[in-house]
């Protein structure tokens, strides 16, 4: 039981499910429940197959989170692009690995692959109403509690740098602040920050490398969106950042994260903050 509470994935599953349900009830999304079921079944099947091939016990929490993220962020007229995204997402965890970790964030690479390779799937960055945006923000804030400080820095740094870029642009252009605020009031951005880029399995383990990772992804997302006018710049930025991640980890080595671990803190903070407890727990499969 304690292990369950220590695993932030449980909280993620609960809040993402809640967001999806709220989105349905508030009719904020135009999502067919069949889409979710197809994505979920594909993700779980891919997880089962992958686990079987590396002879580990399948854990369905991760594919469930990936399925929820994909359902919230990716749209298609037909089922196959969504199922393909789920298969690519989970498949990448087993097949694209380096130094004992998977390279890409699963839902992210699923989205990027489908958006890049086909016209059949698309993201809908503008389609979140204020209510659902606020709900996503609350859910994201709640994530801090469950992470108990682990990786809490990633969404903060990402959003901070991204917001700073937007406001700096507004100041440079002489635009009203209503414009950067409008851009920040985007449900997909919040979801991305709290539930995608913050994934401890695909962020660097060292605190400094992690800050560089989050800040770099934010700058890249800004540049892609506002200087190259690429609509899905957010997702491309993360895919590129995860590719660069091994280099960052090499510069700032740290033990690999396992679900339930507290975060590592930069040395400078360790002098002021009490030492973190390191709970012993079995390494979960994927």
């Amino acid at each position: 039981m304690k292990g369950l509470l220590n695993d932030p994935r449980i909280y993620q599953i609960v809040t993402l499910s809640g967001l999806l349900a709220f989105g349905w009830l508030a009719r904020a999304f135009d999502i067919d429940p069949v889409h979710f079921i197809a994505i979920l079944l594909t993700a779980c099947a891919a997880q089962a197959l992958g686990s079987f091939m590396i002879a580990t016990k399948p854990d369905f929490k991760s594919p469930l989170i990936t399925a929820l993220s994909l359902t919230l962020l990716l749209r298609a007229d037909t089922l196959w692009p969504l199922m393909a995204a789920a298969a690519i997402a989970i498949g990448s965890k087993f097949m694209l690995r380096l130094n004992g970790k998977h390279i890409f964030n699963p839902a992210n690479i699923g989205i990027v692959a489908m958006v890049l390779l086909t016209d059949a799937a698309w993201t809908t960055p503008g389609q979140w109403g204020t209510a659902i945006w606020f709900a996503a923000l609350l859910a994201g804030a709640g994530l801090f509690v469950t992470y108990r400080a682990a990786r809490f820095d990633v969404p903060l740094i990402f959003l901070g740098v991204f917001a700073a870029s937007l406001f700096a642009r507004a100041i440079w252009l002489g635009d009203p602040f209503a414009i950067p605020l409008l851009r920040l009031e985007n449900g997909a951005l919040i979801l991305f920050a709290f539930f995608m880029i913050s994934d401890p399995k695909t962020t660097p383990d060292g605190a400094i490398a992690r800050a560089a990772f989050a800040g770099g992804a934010a700058l890249l997302a800004y540049v892609l969106t506002f200087h190259f006018f690429i609509n899905d710049g957010l997702f491309y930025a993360l895919a590129i950042a995860t590719l660069v991640r091994p280099a960052l980890e090499w510069l700032d080595p740290a033990p690999h994260y396992k679900w339930g671990d507290p975060v590592t803190r930069p040395k400078i903070l360790r002098r002021f903050l009490p030492p973190l407890k390191t709970p012993a727990h079995p390494a979960p499969a994927e």
């Binding site: 749209r75 007229d77 016209d119 414009i179």
Partner: peptide, 14 residues
């Protein structure tokens, strides 16, 4: 509507 309208084309043909 403080900002210009930014569009994107989706693959939605429904």
């Amino acid at each position: 509507f403080p900002e210009d309208l930014m569009f994107k084309e989706t693959g939605d043909r429904s």
